[in-house]
């Protein structure tokens, strides 16, 4: 039997090492895209953030860039209100859909229902926006004109973040050890009581992570909200008031903004990025803690 040629093994060790190095560099380059994003957005914000202009985002009355008014608070309230309402609606619906899939759906419905939720996650935000504009807004306008409103924005956001809540909650529920529900059954608990008092508390962390990620998605959503919210810069006083969100503001004004004005748009982008990065990391932490919890 011939031993392995030493020359060959030397060259293959060599290719392995160069492959490892190449892939390592590729990985660093890819990860540095995030750094590049933060760097370039930060660079564009410098004109607005250097100098005394910084406080104007909170102290100026309102947002009239052509008249040198750069108050962003009304749009911040718009963003927060629409996101909060969407989370309030989507959380019970999403958890309900996940429970339905796992415990209540008749067997032939389970797979189509899950496929439907996954497909819902893939639909373009512009399609949601278009549907909202042609169906939902006129519907709301029939009761309380003008229709394009905080309510319309929140409802569209609810539909858009539902799949995130539902799919991630289902994964969290599925990761609850089988023995938990067995134990609950042995205690004579009904199905509903088992779910409410055993399964959901055990899956709490995973569901919480789902809600955090859904919040991030709602905060960052742009086109669908822009199309149905009316885009009037004002602090919303009722559900039926038109609003403008920070993201919609960027999309609406980037086309013609220059200098200080352009720079302020990047400021709102930078703030959004930091908030969403913090949420993503928080979700990551919560999920990991959940994983180690069950293992223990």
């Amino acid at each position: 039997m011939q031993p392995v040629q030493p020359l060959q093994s030397v060259t293959s060790a060599h290719t392995d090492r160069s492959l490892q190095l190449t892939l390592f560099i590729v990985s660093l380059v890819t990860a540095s895209v995030l750094g590049l994003i933060v760097l370039f957005i930060f660079r564009e914000t410098l004109p607005a953030l250097s100098g005394p202009g910084m406080l104007r985002f909170v102290t100026d009355e309102s947002w009239h860039p052509l008249e040198n008014q750069f108050g962003m608070l009304p749009m911040l309230w718009g963003t927060l209100a629409s996101t909060a309402l969407a989370i309030f609606l989507a959380t019970p619906l999403g958890i309900g859909a996940a429970l339905f899939c796992r415990y209540f759906a008749p067997r032939p419905i389970v797979r189509p229902f899950r496929a439907l939720i996954t497909l819902l996650a893939g639909i373009s935000s512009v399609v949601f926006g278009f549907w909202g504009l042609t169906v939902l807004v006129p519907l709301i306008a029939r009761f309380e004109p003008p229709g394009a409103s905080l309510l319309a924005a929140s409802l569209i956001l609810t539909i858009m973040i539902l799949p995130t809540v539902a799919l991630m909650s289902e994964a969290a529920i599925n990761s609850v050890p089988e023995s938990y529900s067995g134990g609950a059954a042995a205690l004579g608990l009904s199905k509903g009581a088992t779910i409410r008092q055993v399964i959901l508390p055990a899956a709490k962390s995973g569901i919480f992570a789902a809600v955090i990620l859904a919040t991030a998605r709602a905060l960052g959503e742009t086109m669908a909200v822009l199309m149905v919210s009316g885009n009037v810069v004002q602090t919303p006083g009722s559900l039926f008031d038109p609003i403008r969100t920070l993201t919609a503001n960027i999309a609406l004004e980037m086309a013609y903004a220059t200098q200080f004005h352009r720079s302020t748009l990047f400021v709102s982008g930078l703030v959004l990025t930091f908030v969403i990065a913090a949420l993503a990391i928080a979700a990551h932490r919560v999920e990991h803690r959940a994983g180690s919890h069950h293992a223990a």
Binding site: L34, G220, M254, G269, I276, A277
Partner: peptide, 18 residues
């Protein structure tokens, strides 16, 4: 990568433009 996956598309638009 996790953070990148969560960044809103409008921010990618800002970055791509700049």
């Amino acid at each position: 990568l996790d953070v990148l996956a969560g960044i809103p598309s409008i921010v990618f638009g800002l970055f791509g433009n700049a």
